[in-house]
Amino acid sequence: PVYLSVKADNSMFIGNDPVTDETMITALNALTEGKKDTTIFFRADKTVDYETLMKVMDTLHQAGYLKIGLVG
């Protein structure tokens, strides 16, 4: 499974590897070998604001990742 996490300080990680807004999709493409039907499990600290969550989800959708599971 692929886990994308947003921490309380808005830092992002794919698994244990830090990513930025600019590198997130490139890292996901490498990890999933470009398979856009891969489910991305998205988790965020409860203090992360809604705007940040939606920005990340919008970026995922624009890149073609449509299977996003929200996890606690």
Rank of each mutant, 00 (worst) to 15 (best):
L28C: 02
D21N: 14
L60P: 00
K7T: 11
E22G: 08
T47A: 13
I40N: 00
P1W: 11
K36N: 05
A8R: 06
D37T: 07
P18H: 08
A63I: 03
A44P: 09
G69A: 15
E33G: 15
T23Y: 06
T52H: 10
E22A: 12
M54V: 11
K67Y: 10
I40Q: 00
N16C: 15
P18I: 10
F41L: 13
V56Y: 08
L31G: 02
G15I: 03
A63L: 04
I25S: 03
V48G: 03
F41E: 07
M54P: 00
K55M: 08
A27T: 14
T23I: 04
A44Y: 14
T20L: 03
Q62I: 07
L28N: 00
Y65A: 00
D21A: 15
A27I: 14
L53Q: 05
D17N: 14
V2A: 03
G69C: 15
R43C: 15
L60D: 00
P18E: 11
T23M: 07
A63K: 02
K36V: 07
M24P: 01
I40M: 02
T38H: 06
T38N: 05
T32P: 01
K55C: 05
T59K: 14
A27D: 04
Y3R: 04
K55T: 06
L53T: 05
T20W: 03
Y3N: 04
L28W: 01
D58H: 14
I14M: 05
M24D: 01
H61N: 10
L31T: 06
L70R: 06
Y50D: 08
T59S: 10
F41Q: 05
T52E: 04
T23A: 06
D45C: 07
D9T: 06
S11P: 01
T52C: 06
A8D: 08
L28F: 02
F13R: 05
T59R: 14
D17S: 12
V2Q: 03
S5R: 11
Y3W: 12
D17T: 14
Y3C: 13
F41P: 00
E33F: 12
I40D: 00
D49L: 12
G34C: 07
L60I: 06
K67D: 09
G64Y: 02
K7C: 14
P1H: 14
A27H: 14
D17F: 13
K7Y: 15
G72C: 13
K46L: 09
G64R: 02
M57S: 03
D37A: 07
A44F: 13
E51K: 13
E22W: 05
V2C: 04
L60M: 03
R43T: 12
A63S: 06
K55N: 07
E33R: 14
D17H: 13
K55V: 05
G69K: 15
T26W: 09
F13K: 05
I25W: 03
A63V: 03
V71S: 10
V6S: 01
K7I: 08
E22H: 07
N29W: 07
L66M: 13
E22S: 10
Q62N: 12
L28Q: 00
P18D: 03
K46W: 10
V6Y: 08
G64V: 01
D49V: 09
M54R: 14
Y50P: 12
G34I: 03
F41K: 04
L4A: 02
E51T: 11
R43G: 05
M54C: 11
A8L: 06
K67T: 11
G72V: 13
P1N: 09
P18L: 12
T59M: 15
F13Y: 13
L31P: 00
D9R: 06
S11V: 10
E33V: 07
Q62T: 10
L70C: 13
N29S: 06
P18G: 05
L66P: 03
V19L: 03
A27Y: 14
V19C: 06
R43E: 08
N29G: 05
E33K: 14
Y65C: 01
E22V: 10
S5H: 14
D37G: 09
G15Q: 07
K46N: 11
V48M: 05
F42R: 00
A44D: 02
E33L: 12
K7W: 11
N10Q: 10
K36H: 07
Y65M: 01
G64D: 02
N16P: 08
F13N: 03
T32V: 07
V56P: 00
I68T: 05
E51M: 12
H61P: 00
P1G: 11
T47Y: 12
T39C: 15
D49H: 11
L60F: 03
I14F: 06
L28Y: 00
A27Q: 11
G15L: 04
I40Y: 00
I68D: 01
D21Q: 15
Q62S: 11
K35V: 07
T38E: 05
K46I: 10
L31R: 09
F42L: 15
D49F: 06
V6R: 04
M24R: 01
G69V: 15
E51L: 13
I40P: 00
N16D: 12
L66C: 11
V2G: 01
T26M: 11
M12L: 11
E51P: 07
T23V: 04
K7N: 12
V71L: 13
G15D: 08
G64Q: 02
